[in-house]
Amino acid sequence: MGQERTLILVKPDGVSQGHIGEVITRLERKGYQIEALKVTYATRAQLDQHYQDKIDKPFYPEMVKYMQEGPIVAIIASGISVVDVFRRMAGQTNVLEADFGTIRGDFGRQWSDGVMRNVVHSSDSVEHAEREIGIWFN
């Protein structure tokens, strides 16, 4: 249980709805450090690398379209157990199942086009975090 890093992406819906500051505030209130932060636009190559396990899924083209709707804020955060703690802060992937008080439970919602946008991405392991950081911060 030592220092580790994680990748957090504030997805296009989180950016357009003005939740960047809230995500940063929640991180800082837990005492985590922000090592890097940038506003970027996802390329298809980045998304294919990042979501390599989902490329063959029927929902993947919709996911790519969603992730390219607008800018993304990419954050490298560090601290003790940051991967697990931020995942708990983010809440369940499905916003309808995310507890209120979590980022997705408070800000995620279904939209009229049927696409479920869930505000943030968070790495699910230290190993995946390091791989994902390499994709977004090279």
Rank of each mutant, 00 (worst) to 15 (best):
83 V>A: 15
70 G>V: 04
97 E>L: 11
69 E>T: 03
68 Q>K: 13
93 T>Q: 03
72 I>G: 03
69 E>K: 00
67 M>W: 11
77 A>K: 07
57 K>E: 15
61 P>E: 04
73 V>P: 12
92 Q>D: 13
96 L>P: 01
95 V>G: 00
92 Q>A: 15
75 I>D: 12
84 D>N: 13
84 D>H: 12
82 V>I: 10
65 K>M: 08
77 A>I: 09
70 G>M: 02
83 V>I: 08
98 A>G: 00
71 P>A: 12
62 E>N: 15
78 S>H: 06
70 G>Q: 08
68 Q>L: 05
63 M>C: 09
64 V>M: 04
60 Y>E: 12
64 V>G: 02
71 P>Y: 07
65 K>S: 13
92 Q>T: 15
79 G>C: 06
65 K>C: 01
98 A>E: 15
87 R>M: 05
68 Q>V: 09
81 S>P: 02
90 A>V: 09
83 V>N: 09
85 V>L: 07
76 I>K: 02
88 R>V: 13
95 V>M: 02
65 K>E: 07
67 M>N: 09
84 D>G: 07
58 P>Y: 01
91 G>Q: 10
82 V>D: 13
58 P>D: 15
61 P>H: 05
68 Q>N: 13
89 M>W: 12
85 V>W: 05
96 L>A: 14
88 R>E: 14
59 F>M: 01
66 Y>G: 00
75 I>R: 14
58 P>R: 15
98 A>Q: 00
73 V>G: 06
73 V>W: 08
57 K>P: 05
70 G>A: 04
97 E>W: 06
72 I>C: 01
81 S>Q: 13
85 V>F: 02
72 I>S: 00
83 V>H: 08
77 A>W: 02
94 N>S: 13
94 N>Q: 09
82 V>N: 11
75 I>V: 15
91 G>H: 14
66 Y>I: 00
59 F>Y: 06
68 Q>F: 06
60 Y>G: 01
95 V>D: 02
59 F>W: 04
57 K>C: 02
85 V>E: 14
68 Q>A: 14
72 I>Q: 02
81 S>R: 11
75 I>M: 10
70 G>Y: 07
81 S>A: 14
85 V>N: 15
61 P>F: 11
58 P>A: 06
68 Q>T: 15
71 P>S: 06
79 G>L: 05
92 Q>E: 14
62 E>C: 04
57 K>N: 13
77 A>F: 04
61 P>W: 10
63 M>D: 12
80 I>K: 15
59 F>R: 01
64 V>A: 03
